[in-house]
Computed example of a mutant assay.
Amino acid sequence: MDLTDRPPAPVRAPHRPRVLRELALSCHPGPVAAVTVLAAALAVGSGPGNGRRVLVTAAVLTGQLSVGWCNDAHDAVRDAEAGRRGKPVARGSTAPRTVWGAAFTALALCVVLSFACGALAGAVHLTGVLAAWAYNLRLKETVLSWLPYAIGFGGLPCLVALSLPGGPWPAWWAVAAGALLGVAAHLGDVLPDIAADLRAGVRGLPQRLGAARTRRLLPLPLAAATAVLVLGPPGAPGPAAVTALGGVAVCAVPACTRCAGPRPAGRRSTGARRRRPWRKGALAGTVVVAAADVVLLLARGTGVA
């Protein structure tokens, strides 16, 4: 038989393990895991009820999965133009409709699981999830890009507290600290991609500020969250809390004042060498502050007795 007479090879459907692997890469696994673990830890520390803890954790997990898949499916063209080959949809190894299907499936599960935690708890949590979807679809390109992060992170203590018997509200300082951590998460998440985002026409708050000012701003909401967690609860703060607040101030001030300063004219290489240690130290200090805030939030809990 002539080669030209051969029928075309049949198109094989993608293997299920490969599809699952690609979906796992598309969901933003790092942030999904971090937020889910934080919510689970808050649920464990809030009171008894293993079933309630599982429901809270599952609701947050499905919500985060839906947000991650929505982001990758919606931004597939933009990510491909930016050369982000680590994203399966952008590199063409997964069809956008597959990821959209996973996103809506996870969102539907999130609705069921959230309301299983309680009517008000479910409404508060879904408000945060829908705010994150609004960020993906539109708000990331506006000056309000920080708001969905503040709503989502501030809603975690609400979900955990409202899932308790009687549905008590969390303390104001737990919600405020969560919202501030959300703002910091937004700044830190966007910071590495500011240049690419500007080329793509994305002009959220960090992009409008620019990389240098965003890097200097990043420690401020983290330091504010520390102050709220130390000074917000009733009673005098203990020595450990005061020490944490002082340590955060030591780490945050250099990051705000010495990181990413303007480049001196005519001294490019020398200036770059001088700034590099400060920049690395400032970013390391920011990580330390963020870790301290998470530990404080877990130690303080939701403020529900």
Score class of each variant (00 low, 15 high):
28 H>P: 04
124 V>P: 04
265 A>N: 04
64 Q>I: 01
51 G>I: 04
69 W>E: 08
261 G>R: 15
246 G>N: 01
117 C>D: 01
119 A>L: 08
52 R>S: 00
108 A>P: 03
9 A>K: 10
38 L>D: 00
163 S>H: 09
146 W>H: 02
88 P>G: 04
135 Y>V: 02
293 D>G: 14
189 D>T: 12
237 P>G: 09
216 R>L: 03
123 A>Q: 07
210 G>L: 07
139 L>K: 07
210 G>K: 05
298 L>W: 14
177 A>K: 08
198 L>W: 02
46 S>G: 11
251 C>T: 12
125 H>F: 14
268 R>L: 15
164 L>N: 03
288 V>F: 05
299 A>W: 15
197 D>S: 06
6 R>A: 15
239 P>N: 08
25 L>A: 14
9 A>N: 05
213 R>W: 14
277 P>W: 13
138 R>P: 00
256 C>G: 14
192 P>F: 12
267 R>P: 02
241 A>Q: 15
69 W>F: 14
132 A>G: 15
59 A>C: 00
298 L>N: 08
47 G>I: 06
179 A>Y: 07
277 P>E: 12
11 V>R: 14
84 R>N: 08
287 V>Y: 13
246 G>S: 05
78 R>D: 00
220 L>V: 15
44 V>W: 15
101 G>H: 12
164 L>P: 03
117 C>E: 02
288 V>C: 08
181 L>M: 15
28 H>E: 14
287 V>E: 09
66 S>Q: 06
285 G>T: 13
213 R>V: 10
93 S>Q: 09
127 T>H: 02
23 L>A: 12
241 A>T: 11
178 G>F: 04
215 R>Y: 05
121 A>G: 02
178 G>T: 03
110 C>Q: 01
282 A>S: 14
212 A>Q: 05
105 T>Y: 04
144 L>M: 13
23 L>G: 09
190 V>H: 01
166 G>L: 10
32 V>T: 15
125 H>N: 13
304 V>G: 00
22 E>I: 00
25 L>V: 06
244 A>H: 02
180 L>H: 03
267 R>L: 13
100 W>D: 10
78 R>G: 00
136 N>Q: 09
237 P>N: 09
160 V>H: 05
244 A>T: 15
126 L>T: 05
218 L>M: 14
225 A>G: 13
6 R>K: 12
35 V>E: 05
26 S>K: 03
198 L>M: 12
152 G>N: 13
289 V>F: 02
173 W>E: 13
118 G>M: 04
235 G>V: 12
18 R>E: 11
261 G>W: 02
11 V>H: 05
103 A>T: 08
206 P>S: 08
43 A>D: 06
282 A>C: 15
251 C>H: 09
138 R>L: 11
76 A>W: 11
292 A>N: 04
164 L>T: 03
